[in-house]
């Protein structure tokens, strides 16, 4: 170890001008690929991401509620949307009663 304590003179540290244009990056990518330095980023999953709340892609309700709606729709022989529409109509009527 040298006797004098190591200290950095910030004024002496220089950064060189670098080409950061898209064309330069493309040239660098091509150069790297020729030597086997290829894209190794994990492949991103395409499409809509699962809802953080329900863990499902399309459902808007929790799984056990979805099952109950599906069972009720099956029992009545209607589409699930019909059950939801009726539930919404009921909600609206309750809301107007509360007003």
């Amino acid at each position: 170890m040298a006797d004098k304590p190591f200290s950095v003179d910030l004024g002496r540290l220089k950064s060189r001008e670098k080409d950061r244009s898209a064309a330069a990056v493309e040239r660098v990518d091509r150069t790297g690929e020729e030597l086997g330095f290829v894209d190794r980023d994990p492949v991103k999953r395409r499409g809509r991401k699962p809802s953080p709340r329900t863990g499902q892609v399309h459902a808007k309700v929790l799984p056990h509620v979805a099952e109950e709606i599906a069972a009720e729709a099956r029992r009545r022989g209607v589409q699930q949307g019909v059950v939801l529409e009726e539930a919404w109509a009921l909600y609206k009527s309750l809301e107007s009663t509360a007003d």
Partner: peptide, 9 residues
């Protein structure tokens, strides 16, 4: 520690 595009960039 791999040969990747990240390294070349």
């Amino acid at each position: 520690g791999v040969a990747s595009r990240l390294v070349s960039r």
